[in-house]
């Protein structure tokens, strides 16, 4: 029986090694999809709580990130993104909410994206809504060397016609 066990062990090592050069197992893909979802939720919560530092921390460091808001040119780099969103994050009467709906990931498990919807409201001092918008977004997510997911690019637009 001993030679058979040795043979089986060799077989196992050989094919395990081969599989490591291919895609992750489906279970691992599901884990990574969940990580993307959580990163996207954290991103949305940072926007909701106006935590600009945390919001910015979710953009890539190893690649110049770009955000593409409507009616503006593409904004590249964390400092420019900070400068662009700073006034919005300072508006106390603005509420922003993001809801991730669809999470997709490559078979290689290191590139994904989220399609979601957003809602913004601006209220006056008495609580009346003076401006409201609803729309959709795509956030791209890339797996980093430390296993975390960060966003190199995002875009959104309104559902409402002007």
């Amino acid at each position: 029986m001993k030679p058979l066990i040795s043979l089986l062990a060799a077989y196992a090592i050989l094919f395990s090694a081969c599989s490591n050069n291919n895609q992750p197992f489906p279970e691992q893909i599901e884990i990574e999809k969940e990580k993307i979802k959580q990163a996207d939720i954290t991103w949305g919560n940072a926007a909701k709580s106006k935590n600009l530092q945390e919001f910015l921390s979710l953009y890539t460091d190893n690649q110049i990130p770009v955000t593409m808001p409507p009616n503006n040119p593409s904004i590249k780099g964390k400092e420019n993104i900070r400068n662009f969103y700073q006034p919005m994050f300072s508006m106390e009467n603005l509420t922003v909410e993001f809801y991730p709906e669809t999470i997709e990931i490559s078979k290689s498990g290191d590139l994904g994206y989220v399609i979601g919807v957003y809602q913004t409201k601006i209220q006056d001092s008495t609580g009346n809504i003076i401006n409201e918008d609803k729309g959709k977004y795509i956030n791209i997510w890339k797996k980093q060397n430390d296993g975390s997911w960060k966003c190199p690019a995002d875009i959104f637009n309104s559902d409402l016609s002007e």
């Binding site: 043979l7 077989y11 050989l14 094919f15 081969c18 599989s19 291919n22 895609q23 197992f25 078979k107």
Partner: peptide, 21 residues
């Protein structure tokens, strides 16, 4: 022993799922 070997071979071949990256 043969059955065991064939089953193990099938199992590990399946796990490797060699779709090319």
């Amino acid at each position: 022993q043969v059955v065991l070997f064939v089953l193990a071979a099938a199992f590990f071949s399946g796990c490797s799922n060699p779709k090319e990256v």
